[in-house]
Amino acid sequence: MAAQAGSAPRRRGARTTALVAAALLLAGCQSPPRADPAPTEVVVRPSSDSAASTVSFAPLRGTPADAAALAHPSLAVKIDNHEEARPQIALNRTDIVFEELVEGGLTRYVAIWHSDVPDEVGPVRSIRPMDPDIASPFGGIIAYSGGQDQFVAMMMATPLLNIVFDYDETGLFFRADERPGPHDVILESAEAVSRNAALAPPPVQFAYGTADPLAAPALAAVPTSRVDLVFSEGRFPAWEWDAAASVWLRSQEGSPDTEASGERVRATNIVTMRVAIDWRYGEVPKTVMIGSGEAWVSAGGRTAHGTWTKDAAGAPIILTADDGSPLRLAPGNTWVELVPSEGSATFTP
């Protein structure tokens, strides 16, 4: 897929606004990986003789939503998690976030927005070799700042529409003066979705249940007040259950994790997947996403054990409980923690 040559990016801050540079690289098209309609529509027939009504659900959250408001593609963005990139913008408005190991023992995020797309997100960073396997099931748009040629080529080969900072000429990216480089690239996310609104919405990725989806005795879920994860010596996030708010609150390396709004980063569901790491790319680790492994779902102050499976790059992740039933999530946003097999996951009652 052809790219045009470009020039330099603009900066925008409290006092300075400059022109954005370079050429637009829009590769791929909308080809949803599954034929599922999105958003999901359920016909509800009241007990009276009144006409049937239709209730729509956000495909990536499982929450009731207006179907017309969801008639647009999802936006996946590669988000920086270096200390100088924090606080990130609008993480609490995501539908799903994947945390992955990258070189140097650091982590980065593939964050997906669909039901609530903010005006701006970031900081945006470069692609890694596992990202095509993570993002492909969602269809729609993928935005990132660049990357090694081989990794960019891998992403370009997916059905996703690629928007790349290195080649943008339309002003969708800018550099924020108040942030240090290279942790300063911001995407005008709502505009990116608006310009590509004709692309298909994402298909459903996970199964959803009630606000307490792990209550069935057969799931053998255990009460959980805290989830501690170790990706490396330098990255050990944790989640604490806030029963009053019915959310998990995030910490990183022992300190509360906040986003740019000042709010603590939070999630309704934590999906922890034990994953292998492929070192074929030298110092750049590739999380192995196609296959199967151990999994835990933490929701409603409980954690249930099971397995994850993913059959192909474009296939969704399937979560199965130890008793063979589906591991369902609570309606709301989800963080997927891709913990290396050399790392650890601890669930405290």
Score class of each variant (00 low, 15 high):
Q4S: 15
A5T: 15
S7C: 10
R10F: 08
R11N: 14
T16E: 15
T16D: 09
A23L: 13
L26S: 14
S31C: 12
P32Q: 12
R34C: 09
S47P: 01
S53F: 14
V55S: 06
V55I: 13
S56D: 06
A58H: 09
L70G: 08
A85H: 02
I89K: 07
A90K: 01
L91V: 03
D95V: 01
D95N: 13
G104I: 06
G105E: 09
V110D: 14
I112L: 11
W113Q: 09
S115V: 02
D119I: 01
I127L: 12
P129I: 09
I134P: 09
S136C: 10
P137M: 06
G139M: 02
I141D: 08
I142T: 05
Y144V: 05
G147T: 00
F151D: 08
V152G: 01
P159W: 00
N162R: 12
D166W: 04
D168M: 00
D168Y: 04
E169Y: 12
F173G: 04
F173C: 08
F174A: 10
E178T: 07
H183K: 06
V185E: 11
E188T: 03
E188N: 08
V193M: 06
A198N: 11
A200F: 02
A200G: 02
P201R: 05
Y208E: 07
G209A: 10
T210L: 02
T210P: 02
D212C: 00
L214N: 01
A216N: 07
A216P: 03
P217L: 07
A220T: 07
T224V: 14
R226W: 10
R226D: 10
D228A: 15
F236L: 00
E240K: 11
W241I: 02
A244Y: 13
V247M: 10
W248I: 01
R250V: 00
D257G: 03
S261C: 05
R264W: 04
T272H: 13
T272P: 01
M273T: 10
I277G: 02
V284S: 12
M289A: 13
E294L: 08
E294W: 14
A299K: 03
G301R: 04
T303F: 07
D311E: 15
G314D: 09
G314W: 04
P316W: 07
I318L: 10
D323H: 05
G332C: 02
G332M: 02
G332Y: 04
L338P: 02
V339P: 03
V339S: 01
S341N: 12
T346N: 13
F347S: 01
